[in-house]
Design a protein around this nucleic acid. Structure first.
Lengths: 167, 167
DNA sequence: TCAAACTTTCAAAAATTATTGAAAATTAAA
DNA sequence: TTTAATTTTCAATAATTTTTGAAAGTTTGA
């Protein structure tokens, strides 16, 4: 496998994987491209490399910046904007975990809490609803802690210790 | 909030959340319904409760069974099939983690490994590709271990210890 | 100020994914 | 067997999501 093949393989894998951490194909592919590019890329560069339209590129770059994993960069004397990705994969994971927690987990926790606190009228279906949503609530909170603390903290000793412990 | 409201709130939340752990709305809603139902439900019950078609119900139940989180149950003297969900949320998490590892993470790890092992021709772009895919590979393996061992193992002492440690 | 370089927006089109419903298949009782 | 109950399949349709591209907007330098 040569460079071009490997690059394309990586970009398309990352792209299809994207859907599964909650971002669309183009967005994930742009991210993949920036991640392995030694130099910042312009919008033109990205459009050309991935064969996607200007609008698509613009919108998805914005979203990546909202996620905090892609940054604008300006080259002096150039009008064009250039983009880079967060290159440190630990920091990348931290940022993604943080955002997913904020966007998905926390709202869910809130609702699970509300639902699990309805009045117990003594019926078996109410009891079951309360029991299960309470259990999910607890699990979601544990997950939230793990995402924010374990993956999160700059200190990654916990993860290391854990992997050693368990491997 | 009364029972009906709480139930609907839970089902629709779980439904929209579904997309984000990789399953579609109907599938997640069926799962939610079974999770809080004290009794096994028939296909008719599910169709009626969620207002979805027979075909849709049938297909999504099958997928839930493929995931190993919903089971068929037969009532004696009845022709109809009934369905229940795995009710233990720890076990549910374990099963989901296991399946996601198998379906998504492991194939990705394989590709990251292939890509990161191309020949280094000395160019900066090849170096960067190798460096970044190696880092992702390592991270993906750590994640895989965590999903299968930490969430996975019946013994949940690790998780408990961890939460205590870090909370 | 104007004009050129560049980016963003957004309605329309395309692509993808989910859902329906009726016909075919299966199952089990008579 | 035959028949009735039930489930599965799958082509057609609907709903949703993504992408395009051109017009509108913005920024900068002359």
């Amino acid at each position: 496998m040569n460079y071009e093949e490997a690059k394309n393989r990586f970009i398309s894998t990352w792209g299809s994987l994207g859907t599964l951490w909650g971002i669309n194909k183009a967005m994930a592919q742009i991210h993949a491209l920036l991640l392995i590019s030694p130099e910042p890329l312009s919008m033109e560069d990205i459009m050309e490399e991935l064969h996607i339209s200007r609008g698509n590129t613009s919108m998805n770059l914005r979203q990546l910046m909202d996620w905090g994993i892609v940054f604008k960069e300006n080259k002096i004397g150039e009008r064009k904007e250039y983009f880079t990705s967060e290159k440190n994969v630990q920091e990348l994971a931290r940022q993604i975990a943080k955002e997913r927690s904020r966007r998905e987990l926390q709202p869910t926790i809130k609702i699970l809490n509300d639902v699990s606190n309805i009045d117990d009228d003594g019926s078996s279906k109410t009891k079951e609803l309360i029991k299960q949503t309470k259990a999910l609530h607890e699990m979601a909170e544990t997950l939230d802690i793990m995402m924010n603390k374990v993956v999160g903290q700059g200190n990654n000793w916990i993860t290391k210790a854990l992997v050693k412990l368990v491997k």
